[in-house]
Design a protein around this nucleic acid. Structure first.
Lengths: 188, 188
DNA sequence: CCCACATGAGACACTCATGTCTCATCGCGG
DNA sequence: CCGCGATGAGACATGAGTGTCTCATGTGGG
């Protein structure tokens, strides 16, 4: 049963990532179950989205662990983070825009914790002297999520290749568009 | 009448920017007119969104003109572009996510033209030697829109100050998070 | 073999936004 | 002063999505 629930959750994630307005009918069909069963596993659309949010948070935290954010240099930590979080980017993009709708309600505490951990890497990088100090850690964190969403959409619309995903995001976030005269790290 | 329509359009833009799911009732109330009148000006919600799209495209093109994208250096052109497009960022963020929903339908041709012009700047910057060549112009363009949306949301949620908006986006897009040893341009 | 339980299919009521309509009112020009 | 046009208010039908319910089926364990 728990397995069925997880299966339905994954299917919902995959579908809603592509079509954020999909109905419960469509989600059920995508999961290969009936709408009734879907309703037995998730009280309603709202509960489903909440569950997806929890899934997204969990995957984010897994990625945070795998990225070993506390190891130096911070630059490499950020690269690892982008790489590890890539599989969840589509789901995150969905949740990211979904969150724009939660007007009054405060967001899930999990996001705050994730935000804090990512913000901390950027702050450490600044204190290290690795990162410039005129871009706030909060903005860098927000920009990371924005770029993840942009990248996910770009891949989805076929305007970009999935294999470039990680590099494009990490390189832009860290290095920017301007060419660096000093020879920096090349490619992967 | 045309003035009324424009007034309603602006009000709708302002509201939908904040709450993308606002109903026709709410839009009408925000514009200070009745739902009936709103319907007389825009055949339906769809027509309203289309009109907003046209408005967004128009504002984008105005910004493109004001940014004088064809002047060198490309770096400054991009900075001007970010500055000029800033007032429209909220509307663009709305349209950006709205476009994710248009599954089958091809997008407005205006976007393609705007995309082309922005892409061209990045390409020119690469040929100039100003920009690195391992980030595709298409990705840089997409990233610009993504960062604009992130910035707009950040300002809206109060997590960032509006006055930093332009700098944060332009600096990240162009320079990235890494510190540059060589002394570059400072501040504005 | 039989029963319990999960499932699928579908009916049903309800909510909500939309689109259309009518009608009274108001303002402005002839 | 009269009438026209635009507007606001509201009723109404419609459609979509949701949530709840019932019932038949089928499958697996006792």
């Amino acid at each position: 049963m728990a397995l069925d629930r997880d299966h339905a959750l994954r299917a919902a994630a995959a579908l809603l990532t592509r079509k954020s307005t999909a109905t419960m009918d469509e989600v059920a069909k995508a999961a290969g179950i009936s709408r009734a069963t879907l309703h037995r596993q998730f009280a309603g659309r709202d509960a489903l989205v909440r569950a997806l949010e929890a899934l997204g948070i969990a995957e984010c935290e897994t990625a945070l662990e795998a990225a070993r954010l506390d190891e130096n240099p911070a630059e490499d930590a950020v690269r690892r983070l982008v790489r590890e979080v890539e599989p969840a980017a589509g789901l995150l993009a969905f949740l990211y825009t979904e969150n724009q709708l939660f007007e009054g309600e405060e967001q899930h505490a999990g996001w705050a914790r994730i935000d804090d951990r990512i913000t901390a890497v950027f702050r450490r990088g600044q204190q290290n002297g690795e990162f410039r100090i005129d871009l706030t850690p909060a903005w860098l964190t927000e920009a990371l999520f924005g770029l993840l969403a942009s990248g996910a959409w770009m891949v989805q619309s076929g305007k970009g290749a999935p294999k470039d995903f990680t590099r494009m995001i990490a390189e832009l976030l860290l290095g920017g568009a301007l060419r660096r005269d000093e020879t920096q790290r090349e490619g992967s």
